[in-house]
Structures are given as structure tokens and as C-alpha cells.
């Protein structure tokens, strides 16, 4: 009897321990962002006196005025990031699905080596070939050109790989066959039958591609030297400069602005994002 009671106590203690750890980790996830949001509304003088506070103030407008009066231009960076991220996402998802379909639906001679190459290069990050990429783009005059960032995702091995895995069970070839019998052309079959059937998989990929494009720093940083072409993560580096050294409130507000779209996406789509990570749909 007493043995049972003590083990029940032990279980309870263990359970409390689990919850305490989880709650601490949850606070750890939120704390930096809460400080960021609250301090974005406080004046630099308030932050200098007390850097840590959970009570928002009302200086967000004056912080914004300070922020935009110097080298940080949120609207330009937002527009640039949006153009690049949306353009790259649309092209990447469409052409990756098309490429995956070419592997799944057709028998062609070099299909197997082609897929093996896709698998092999999936993991090579663009940073290690960036020197050749930059010199090549410089030679053909494509630095400071968004096309140099929007076009390369057309050949995204990881997305092709994911879409192939997705398509094999999700796409019944019988439907394609009967469309052929009805006389539909191959390209029309892809656009009007295959694409709608692959929508859930494409949506998952679209979220991840958009986020990784939005967060991308290295390649835009070497390619875009014109300040009017800068993206959000590049604009962030301005906040580390001497200009904003004592403008604490403005710095926190600037940081908040750069991640605002990502926050919105995450709180709307977190369920799908977590499910997508579990599927192995993400790779960085």
C-alpha cells in the first residue's frame, strides 16, 4: 500500500517537473520577442533607465520617426523582400511540381540519373558556390537585379524531392489516363488536373519557401549593393550601426518591423507549418 502511494507521489513529482521544464522553455521562446515588442513602444530614455519592462508605453510613433529619419527604410525593404519572396515562391513551387511530375508520370531514358543528381545536390548550400555565382552575375550585369534572386529557385532540388514524394501516393494515374482519352493535351492535363490535386503539398512547400526566401541574408547581401534594392534582413544590419547606438526604442521597433510578416504567417499557419516540418518538408 505505502509502496504504491510513494510511487504515485514520485509520478506526480515527475509530472510537475515535466510541466515546469516545458513552461520554462515556452517562456524562453517568448521572452526575447516580448521584450522586443514592449520596448518598441518605449522611449530610449525609459529603456536606458530600465531595459526590462512588461508594460508597454506610448512612444511607438516617435520611435518610428527616429527610425525612418536615418538609414533604415522599412517600406522600401518590405517591398523588395515581398517582390523577391513572392516571385521566387511562385516560380519555385510551380516548376518544382512540373519537374516532379516529369519524374513521376513519364518514363524517359535519363530519368533515374536525373533524380539521383537531384538527390545528390540537395544538400549543397549556395554559400559555398557564391563566389562563382557573384562573379558570373557581375559579368552579365545582374548584380542589383532581382531576377538573379527570383530565377534560381526554379531549380530547387529539395522542393522537387518533396513534391515527388507527395505526388506518388496523391496522384492517381488513372485520372491522367482518362483525361488523355478525352483528348486533353499533356500540358493542359498538368495545369488543370495535376496541379489542383497537388495543392495541399504545394501550399506546405510555398510556406517554407516564402519564409526561407524572406529570411535569406547571404546571397542578397553579396548581390544587392544599391541601397534601394535592400531586403529586410539586410536592412536589419543598419540597426547595428553607430547611427542607432543610443536609439534603443527605434532599434527594437526596427527589429519588430522586419519580422512582423513572419509573425503573422506563423500565428495563422503554425499548425500546417509544424505538420510540414514533421513531414520532412523543410531543410535548411
Amino acid at each position: 500500500m505505502s509502496h504504491k502511494a510513494s510511487s504515485r507521489n514520485g509520478n506526480l513529482a515527475y509530472k510537475i517537473f515535466q510541466y515546469v521544464v516545458c513552461i520554462i522553455l515556452a517562456i524562453l521562446s517568448l521572452f526575447p520577442f516580448i521584450v522586443m515588442i514592449v520596448n518598441a513602444t518605449r522611449s530610449s530614455a525609459q529603456i536606458q533607465a530600465h531595459a526590462l519592462s512588461l508594460i508597454p508605453s506610448h512612444y511607438i510613433k516617435s520611435n518610428l520617426a527616429v527610425l525612418t529619419s536615418k538609414t533604415f527604410h522599412p517600406l522600401i525593404a518590405f517591398r523588395n523582400s515581398a517582390i523577391i519572396s513572392i516571385g521566387a515562391t511562385v516560380l519555385c513551387v510551380y516548376f518544382s511540381t512540373l519537374t516532379a511530375y516529369s519524374i513521376v508520370a513519364y518514363d524517359w531514358k535519363f530519368k533515374k540519373p536525373f533524380f539521383a543528381i537531384i538527390m545528390a545536390i540537395m544538400m549543397i548550400p549556395p554559400t559555398v558556390t557564391s563566389i562563382g555565382f557573384y562573379q558570373f552575375m557581375y559579368k552579365i550585369g545582374m548584380t542589383n537585379n532581382f531576377a538573379a534572386l527570383i530565377l534560381p529557385p526554379i531549380a530547387a532540388p529539395a522542393t522537387v524531392f518533396f513534391m515527388r514524394q507527395y505526388m506518388i501516393p496523391a496522384l492517381p494515374m488513372e485520372i491522367v489516363q482518362s483525361a488523355r482519352i478525352d483528348g486533353a493535351g499533356e500540358f493542359r492535363i498538368f495545369n488543370q488536373i495535376v496541379l489542383p490535386l497537388c495543392k495541399p503539398g504545394m501550399a506546405t512547400q510555398a510556406i517554407f519557401i516564402f519564409v526561407s526566401q524572406w529570411n535569406n541574408l547571404f546571397i542578397p547581401m553579396i548581390l544587392l549593393t544599391d541601397k534601394n534594392k535592400w531586403t529586410m534582413p539586410m536592412m536589419v544590419s543598419q540597426l547595428a550601426g553607430d547611427m542607432y547606438k543610443t536609439e534603443y526604442g527605434a532599434v527594437y521597433l526596427g527589429l519588430l518591423l522586419t519580422v512582423l510578416p513572419i509573425f503573422v504567417i506563423y500565428f495563422l499557419l503554425s499548425k500546417y507549418i509544424i505538420a510540414g516540418v514533421a513531414l520532412g518538408g523543410v531543410k535548411e
Binding site: 522553455l25 515556452a26 521562446s29 517568448l30 520577442f33 519564409v211 524572406w214 529570411n215 541574408l217 529586410m232 534582413p233 539586410m234 536589419v236 544590419s237 527589429l255 522586419t258 519580422v259 513572419i262 509573425f263 504567417i265 506563423y266 503554425s270 507549418i273 509544424i274 516540418v277
Partner: peptide
């Protein structure tokens, strides 16, 4: 919450 930091811009 545990996954959240992974999706936020690393530069930020």
C-alpha cells in the same frame, strides 16, 4: 512555441 524561433529571421 518551441518551434517558433526557427522561423524568425536569423539576422533579426
Amino acid at each position: 512555441l518551441f518551434y517558433m524561433p526557427n522561423i524568425i529571421t536569423a539576422a533579426t
